[in-house]
């Protein structure tokens, strides 16, 4: 590109400042000694002590992680099945309807998903006596439902890129359907399954609105705990919590980046070796 993109670079700098200044400001103020969260009153780590001595936070984090692990795993299984269905089974009764049901939750506003799930669980409780009380189970069921469609999207697009002839080759060589699925299809789409699982996990871990409608007494996830605190205004220990979150996420992303970089380099090295071997 010959043309000097001064304007574009300026906007990029502005954009990234816009992205990161609020986060950095929050991190700096987590070390603020003052009770007034927005006025600087000297350096202190006391909000971290307050946070870490708060048993509620630990319990809420544990609950969030449990729900996210279960719902991400179930969502990945169901979502992968739906993705395979959309990509492989061109004709079955109600296909259009099915693809509509897979797309609709993506554009459904969270408030509506929330109240519809809550009314559904209440009505179900009236009709068949289950679930008697809302909490862990109802939150997990709701999370599975709205995160599985994201997995479906990821798996579907991976399946469309996949070379069908390797499945056909395996069939021609006498593999049974189960073997084809286990030895060919699943290994090929495994990166999509992993990224779908991660997506479902983070969506579940982060959700406020749907969780707030489907929760019951005693089931407070971490986002619900933060929600109930920040509704009352800015509190300094949330700054500390946010800082820890950002650091944890940054750490995970850095590790993932290093691992991916290493895998990429190994792949390139292998390719080069293969070319050399072929002369």
């Amino acid at each position: 590109m010959k043309r000097s993109p001064v304007f574009l670079i300026t906007v990029l700098c502005f954009g990234f400042a816009f992205f990161y200044i609020p986060i950095l400001s929050m991190m700096v103020y987590s070390f603020n000694d003052s009770r007034l969260a927005t006025v600087w009153g000297g350096f202190s780590t006391r909000w971290y002590e307050t946070l870490l001595s708060n048993r509620q936070v630990g319990a809420a984090l544990l609950l969030s992680v449990q729900i996210a692990l279960i719902s991400a795993t179930c969502a990945t299984i169901l979502g992968a099945m739906a993705g395979i269905t959309l990509a492989r089974f061109r004709r079955f009764r109600g296909r259009t309807f099915f693809s509509g049901m897979v797309t609709a939750p993506l554009i459904m506003p969270e408030v509506i998903t929330g109240i519809s799930s809550l009314m559904f669980f209440i009505m179900l409780g009236q009709w068949i006596g289950w679930p008697g009380q809302r909490g862990f189970t109802t939150i997990t069921l709701a999370h599975i439902t709205f995160s599985m469609v994201y997995v479906t999207t990821v798996v579907h697009s991976r399946m469309l890129q996949m070379d069908r002839s390797i499945e056909e080759a395996a069939m021609d060589l006498g593999s049974r359907p189960w073997q084809v699925l286990k030895d060919v299809t699943l290994p090929v789409i495994s990166p999509a399954l992993l990224s779908g699982w991660l997506l479902a996990f983070t969506i579940s871990l982060d959700d406020v609105v749907i969780t707030s409608f489907t929760t019951g007494p005693g089931a407070t996830t971490l986002p619900l705990l933060i929600w109930s605190k920040v509704k009352l205004g800015v509190t300094p220990d949330i700054n500390a919590l946010a800082t820890l979150t950002v650091l944890a996420v940054g750490f995970c992303v850095a590790i993932a980046g290093v691992l991916m970089n290493r895998a990429e380099r190994r792949r390139l090295a292998d390719e080069r070796l293969a070319y050399q071997a072929n002369g």
Partner: peptide
């Protein structure tokens, strides 16, 4: 990947 709620909260502080 950082919490949506915390990103809204960051602006409440600002």
């Amino acid at each position: 990947w950082t919490s949506f709620l915390l990103r809204v909260y960051a602006w409440m502080g600002l």
